[in-house]
């Protein structure tokens, strides 16, 4: 059962880390608001459930669109700074500000929703709504399916379409891409929209897994960054690798620690991902996908 939880968690982390990596590659902005994007999705799913009785699984397409809009708005508000060549510190502060605005909006909305529904909606879970197949939770299948669909879609987009090749080209070398006639601005816009959309979907699935409060985004952002950094912020595939490494180790190591030292250790999940992240940064600053494996092999065999 613990492995089931680890896989579900990893799947969601992959969705979130992928968005973070994508926008980092295209615009060089480490986005601290990525976690809150997801929580926006969670509350929209809650609203659809409470007001219209729509099962959260069915509202995923709506969340995709809502998330996309949040991502778009973020990019538009960062754009004046990007245009001015603001330093990366300033851009990070700007995303912290956007995160705070989102937290305010989510918090305010949760109370408004509570008044409409007539009971408090500040905290909620969807786990009780889930179905099960062969004793496994539905979210295991759904989240895995979403990740597979996403990877398949991304593969088709990036390797089989003209826009995708252009997207990869502008990620690698934006100024050369411009000389080819690619509108780099469009690819940036796209990356933010997609990043928000993926986070929105992750937000619809997250409440099946853990309790949501308005500030949950600030908590999961550590794991998201850990996943992206461990995998390597410079490669999209890094988010996939990092998502599973962080997701599984956070779940498993914490679980075994708790087994050995008591339930108090369950709260140390974030510490585990933090330690893995720092260790990665010190050994391989550009993450697993940033390592020159040929060199490593050479060094190993030459000894």
């Amino acid at each position: 059962m613990i492995i089931e939880g680890a896989i579900i968690y990893s799947n969601l982390l992959v969705l979130l880390a992928l968005g973070l990596t994508l926008t980092y590659i295209t615009t060089n902005v480490p986005n601290f608001a990525q976690g809150s994007y997801a929580i926006v999705g969670s509350y929209v799913a809650l609203t659809l459930l409470k007001l219209f009785g729509i099962c959260p699984y069915l509202s995923l397409p709506v969340l995709f669109i809502v998330g996309a809009i949040v991502g778009l708005l973020t990019y538009l508000s960062l754009k004046p700074l990007i245009k001015r060549n603001a330093s990366v510190e300033m851009l990070m502060i700007a995303t912290l500000a956007i995160d705070l605005i989102l937290l305010g909006v989510i918090g305010a909305y949760s109370e408004v929703l509570s008044q409409i529904v007539g009971s408090t909606q500040a905290k909620f879970v969807f786990a009780n709504l889930d179905f099960s197949i062969f004793g496994f939770r539905g979210i295991l299948f759904v989240s895995t399916l979403v990740v597979i669909l996403l990877l398949f879609g991304l593969y088709l987009l990036l390797y089989k379409t003209k826009f995708g090749i252009a997207l990869r080209a502008s990620m690698e070398n934006p100024s050369l891409a411009q000389t080819m006639g690619i509108d780099v601005e469009k690819t940036r816009l796209f990356s933010w929209i997609l990043s928000g959309a993926l986070a929105g979907v992750a937000g619809g699935l997250l409440p099946f897994m853990q309790e949501i409060v308005p500030a949950t985004g600030d908590l999961i952002i550590i794991s998201i960054f850990a996943a992206s950094i461990v995998g390597g912020l410079r490669h999209i595939s890094g988010a996939l690798i990092g998502g599973y490494i962080i997701g599984i180790s956070e779940s498993l190591i914490t679980y075994y620690l708790a087994m050995a030292f008591g339930a108090g250790f369950l709260v140390y999940g974030k510490v585990v991902s933090l330690i893995i992240m720092i260790a990665t940064l010190l050994i391989a600053p550009y993450g697993i996908t940033g390592v020159d494996w040929k060199k490593v092999r050479k060094r190993l065999f030459s000894q």
Partner: peptide
Amino acid sequence: IPFEPVWLSYMLFGVLMLLILYYKP
């Protein structure tokens, strides 16, 4: 306002920060 003012203050201060970054870096 149908919610706790703390949320409003978050929005206000977040927007204020963005305005500083835009106009008075």
